[in-house]
Design a protein around this nucleic acid. Sequence first.
DNA 1: CATGAAATCTTGACGCTGTCAAGATGGCTG
DNA 2: CAGCCATCTTGACAGCGTCAAGATTTCATG
Lengths: 210, 210
Amino acid sequence: MDADLQKKPHHHGNLREALVLAGLQLLEEGGPDALTLRKCAALAGVSHAAPAHHFDGLHGLKWALAEEGFRRFRNYMVDAEVTGEQTPRGRMKSICRGYLHFARDNRALFQLIFGFDAKDVPVRPTRDVGSFGYEPLRRCCAPFIPDDVPREVIEAQVWSLIHGFTTLFLAGRFWALEDAPEDGAFDQVMALLDRVGTAPESLGNPGDPS
Amino acid sequence: MDADLQKKPHHHGNLREALVLAGLQLLEEGGPDALTLRKCAALAGVSHAAPAHHFDGLHGLKWALAEEGFRRFRNYMVDAEVTGEQTPRGRMKSICRGYLHFARDNRALFQLIFGFDAKDVPVRPTRDVGSFGYEPLRRCCAPFIPDDVPREVIEAQVWSLIHGFTTLFLAGRFWALEDAPEDGAFDQVMALLDRVGTAPESLGNPGDPS
DNA sequence: CATGAAATCTTGACGCTGTCAAGATGGCTG
DNA sequence: CAGCCATCTTGACAGCGTCAAGATTTCATG
């Protein structure tokens, strides 16, 4: 048994998974620039060219990491959903809170997933893993779809708001709101979602400067 | 005069500006990965190490490009504002349209500006050039600030929505909306702004599943 | 005007990166 | 048992950012 452990077999056995885990570790520890094929190989204990047999270059590794990232991303959202307030609007805000917290806790991975040079991602994540990863968002939007508005529009509204808030907040762009208590800025900005799915003509606000 | 033009002087004369222009050209032609100190130097006709005397490495060059990018970004928004409908809400949507169109027409530069690894940008752009660049957005939000809501919250709502929409749309994430006519998806999603700055209790929508 | 300091640019080198080609190794199938 | 093939290693290559040292030009100062 010691021989099995000590002698390094020529075949790693599960190198692909080991490389993905190494990549996740590198992203976590050193940010996007620390992700390197050679460092992943070193961390997995193989030679620098070994990853080429499991991924299509660096792009392929990033794609594999994005796949795993989507899974964890979805878990964040679903966990927040089942933990939070059990109303349609409570579920929607919980999903969004999970969205924000995943990005906060996995900055580099979030950035990798949404890094929007299309060539970094051989297959559109939104179509494959993405449709699975965004299913919670889609589901939580369902109760708010008016009859005369396409589903995709409401989803795009919610998604745009939480995605924009997440990226700008994490980039430190909302410095005026950052002194607020935990999730304070989140709650205030997400208050716009209290209006989602409601007809604009139903609000006759006094002094509304349209 | 020919001597002046033909003989390459040891001092370039305006190398810093030439390098910035070269960088913008590289970004436009080849995307973010094409931006390279050595290629900028070659394009400006100097040796590969010359840029080091004008920028603090690659980070410094990116910062200089972000500065110029902010200026052009602001021009896009202001141009859209003065061209579009002259109402408070019309101005707000025009600013947002300029936001989207700048990103569409300057993908790599937009990505550089908002690439949110903080270490890429030595000084927070939001505080310096940024406060100038975002002044149009701030101004167009002013008419919609309710008495009991901080200015920054409304601004963050509008900014989050347009920023999220822009990045997700350009990443091809809204494939269900992309068949719409020019700016169709934009108009539909930005319709959420019709609710901005209105009190949530003013909407008593029948069948509202809060 | 002369002279020295400082700014500017070149040359060369270093280590790191992704990628390719060729060879070694070992498990699996016929 | 033989041979194929996936897997992994080794070595090499160009391109990258960066540093050090030297050459050249400009500028200020005496």
